[in-house]
Design a protein around this nucleic acid. Structure first.
Lengths: 215, 215
DNA sequence: CAAAGAGTAGGTATAAACACCTATTCAAAC
DNA sequence: GTTTGAATAGGTGTTTATACCTACTCTTTG
């Protein structure tokens, strides 16, 4: 919902792959690819001058690979969200990356739309992963993460009420009348819903509600 | 999407049932129950002075029952949409009613939300039925209706393109830039989409898209 | 060849949504 | 007992969406 776009850095050793990713990300007006890098070393050089919100980081790279880069990044920048990319669907790798503080994990043969969703979600909620990641994490009982609290933003009871009514095509004014509150309050709830779900507008809110089975 | 509400007549011999239905329908700001009647006779008396868009018609009634009422209505008012209500889930009855020109069929122990949806859909698309109705119709090979063409409004290619982009949270202006057309044209497409899907606003459009697997 | 429908686009409004603020109250949690 | 979060609500703009019009150009279809 913010005016400021989500600033993205793209780190992968293959130029063609980076180009493809840029095209995929260009589909989203609220995304901005600030810079690319072909390895971790180059990434840190650029990062010093150009801050980003999200890094899409390939695991397999020459010079300074994704794991090394992630480790070093976590010692200096705790606020930057990292989505790890790899070709290998290995439970051990997933667990390792998550423990190192990755915010998301994606396979390289994933659907393009998923990448955008991943960026959106890590930016808004701090975490994104697909079902295979959940499975891997569940297998690992030495897991230190509190997954439950991270998976979904906590939507309050009142916000949920408002969200349900929004999905029934009521306007803010109508919802206010139904709930006997000011329409400014309804707007407040909707605004906080947009923040929590990482939506640009009411459409994103409705999509979120449907996709998460809230309606 | 129209400003004008959907005008509804409620025909059932039980006053309490009519009252309950009115409460259910009152949940929708775009619905207006113009009048009630306790049988077909009374219904036609009121209809002469108060036009309606949709009639919710009970099958079982004294004096002039739902079937008789439906038959007579089809000789004079072809444009009024009729939703038949009954307690009995009989394939023969369903087929008979549909052949007589009913636009929808609902069981009396249906979920309240379904009633609103039925009204919305018959008003917008001319037809609404649940899965058990489809089954009944399929069993009947002497069926004269062209069901396929009635079930869903035909959304054109360009409209579908616009709808997809709307669901990706793009504004009309952004969609216009993407498709190299004027934003007035995009608005035109969206407007016609709203008409076809019977939506009040962009939220209804998104809900329709999701529920019909268009996204 | 006339009629219908899709796609295009503009005029002129109002209504709703959105952004960015502040501020109070109240209950729960630490 | 202070802090935090949820719910409340107002101010003040800008941007989008919506309503209700008209009208032109195509292509398809009867």
């Amino acid at each position: 919902m913010e005016n400021a776009p989500i600033r993205i850095a793209l780190v992968d050793d293959q130029k063609l792959f980076r180009g493809g990713m840029k095209m995929i990300l260009a589909d989203r007006p609220d995304f901005e690819v600030v810079f690319e890098a072909k390895n971790g070393k180059q990434f840190f050089e650029r990062l010093a001058f150009e801050p980003v919100d999200v890094v899409i980081l390939d695991v397999e790279m020459p010079e300074m690979d994704g794991i090394e880069t992630l480790e070093r990044l976590r010692t200096t920048h705790d606020d930057i969200r990292v989505i790890m990319l790899t070709m290998h669907d290995s439970d051990r790798l997933i667990n390792h990356l998550m423990e190192l503080g990755a915010n998301g994990f994606l396979l390289k043969d994933e659907d393009p739309d998923i990448v955008c969703k991943a960026v959106e979600r890590v930016a808004a909620e701090g975490i994104f992963f697909r079902d295979y990641v959940s499975k891997a994490l569940l297998k690992n009982n030495r897991n230190k993460m509190n997954i439950g609290s991270l998976i979904k933003p906590k939507i309050s009871d009142r916000e949920m009420e408002v969200l349900q009514l929004i999905c029934k095509e009521f306007t803010s004014k109508e919802i206010a009348e139904k709930l006997f509150i000011s329409y400014r309050t309804v707007e407040g709830h909707r605004r906080s819903l947009q923040e929590k779900t990482g939506s640009r507008n009411i459409v994103g809110l409705v999509m979120y509600a449907v996709q998460n089975g809230l309606v």
